[in-house]
C-alpha cells in the first residue's frame, strides 16, 4: 500500500547509494522534483535508467550521482546536446559514465518485460546496426516456431521507479493521463516506487487515455504541485520550453553548471 510522505522523506527511505533508479517520463510527467531531491541528498553510484534522459539526468550526471546510464536517446529535446552527459562520456567529468545503450523499441521492450515479470523481451530490431555489436544487453534469438532471427533484450527491474502524475486519491491510488510514455511499466517493473502528484482528490473522473495505478503498486505518494517543471503535467501546466533552451549555456560550461548546482542544493533555484 502506498503511504503519503514528504519528498525528502520518501527519497531518503527508498533511494540508496548504488541503486538502479529510473526517473521516467517521455517529455511529459517527469519528476524533476525527485531528481533534484536525489542530488540534494548526495546519492552516489546510481545506475540511472530512462528512455529519454533529458535535462534532469544531465543535472544528476553533472552532480556526480551516476555510475552508469541505461538509455535510448540522450539529448535536450528541441535544443541540442546534453553537455554534462557528453562531458562525462567524452572526458570522464565529474566521473566516468558507463553506458548501456538501446533503441527506443528495444528499451520499451525491456520495460514491458520487466512489468510482465518475464526474463527478457523480444523485438524485430537492431539488424545490421553497430548497436548490436557494442551493447551487451542485445542478443540474437531464433523464433522457436518459425526460425526467424529476432533480438532479445533483458527485462528492466530497477530498485526504484519514480514518476510524476496528475492526481492521487485519499487512498493513495494514482491517476495520470495524456502522453503516458512508460510510466505504468516503470512503476510495475520497479521493486519500489515513488510517485509525485499535482494534487489529491476525493475521487477520480474518467479521462481520455487515463491510467490508474492502484495504491498497492506504489510505495510512496508525495504531493508536489509543479514537481514536473520544466516538463509538464497535462491539464495542469505547459512545458517550459524556455527552461530547456536556457539550460544549454549552463550545461556547456562546468563553472556555470557548478554555480547552478550550488544554488539548487541551497534551494535557491530549481
Amino acid at each position: 500500500m502506498s503511504r503519503f510522505a514528504g519528498l525528502a522523506e520518501a527519497v531518503a527511505a527508498h533511494v540508496g547509494d548504488g541503486d538502479t533508479v529510473a526517473v521516467e517520463g517521455f517529455t511529459h510527467l517527469i519528476s524533476f522534483a525527485a531528481g533534484h531531491e536525489i542530488i540534494r541528498q548526495g546519492r552516489r553510484d546510481l545506475t540511472l535508467v530512462r528512455m529519454t534522459p533529458d535535462v534532469v539526468y544531465d543535472q544528476m550526471i553533472g552532480a556526480g550521482c551516476a555510475r552508469k546510464l541505461v538509455f535510448s536517446w540522450g539529448g535536450n529535446p528541441g535544443v541540442g546536446s546534453l553537455h554534462r552527459f557528453r562531458d562525462a562520456v567524452e572526458n570522464g567529468w565529474p566521473r566516468p559514465l558507463e553506458i548501456d545503450e538501446h533503441s527506443h523499441a528495444g528499451l520499451a521492450e525491456r520495460w514491458r518485460a520487466g512489468a510482465a515479470g518475464l526474463p527478457f523481451g523480444v523485438l524485430r530490431g537492431y539488424s545490421g546496426t553497430s548497436l548490436a555489436d557494442h551493447t551487451l544487453t542485445i542478443a540474437p534469438i531464433a523464433c522457436p516456431f518459425t526460425g526467424e532471427e529476432l533480438a532479445a533484450v533483458p527485462a528492466l527491474n530497477p530498485d526504484v521507479g519514480i514518476i510524476h502524475a496528475q492526481q492521487a486519491d485519499r487512498a493513495g491510488n494514482v491517476m495520470l493521463w495524456g502522453i503516458s510514455g512508460v510510466q505504468k511499466e516503470c512503476v510495475l517493473s520497479s521493486r519500489r516506487s515513488i510517485v509525485t502528484v499535482e494534487e489529491v482528490v476525493d475521487s477520480f473522473e474518467p479521462r481520455v487515455n487515463g491510467v490508474v495505478l492502484p495504491s498497492w503498486t506504489i510505495d510512496a505518494v508525495c504531493v508536489v504541485p509543479g514537481g514536473a517543471h520544466p516538463s509538464y503535467a497535462h491539464d495542469f501546466s505547459e512545458r517550459d520550453n524556455d527552461y530547456y533552451a536556457a539550460w544549454d549555456p549552463i550545461s556547456r560550461d562546468r563553472r556555470a553548471f557548478e554555480a547552478w548546482l550550488g544554488g539548487m542544493r541551497d534551494g535557491v533555484a530549481a
Binding site: G78, H104, L123, G181, K184, N209, Y232, H234, E238, R239
Partner: peptide, 22 residues
C-alpha cells in the same frame, strides 16, 4: 518543440503508451 508537447496529444486521434507505438 518536443516529441511530447501537449499540442500533439490534444490533437491526436489516439494517444497510446510508448511500448505500443513501437
Amino acid at each position: 518543440s518536443s516529441i511530447g508537447d501537449g499540442v500533439l496529444s490534444d490533437t491526436a486521434d489516439a494517444v497510446i503508451g510508448v511500448p505500443e507505438i513501437f
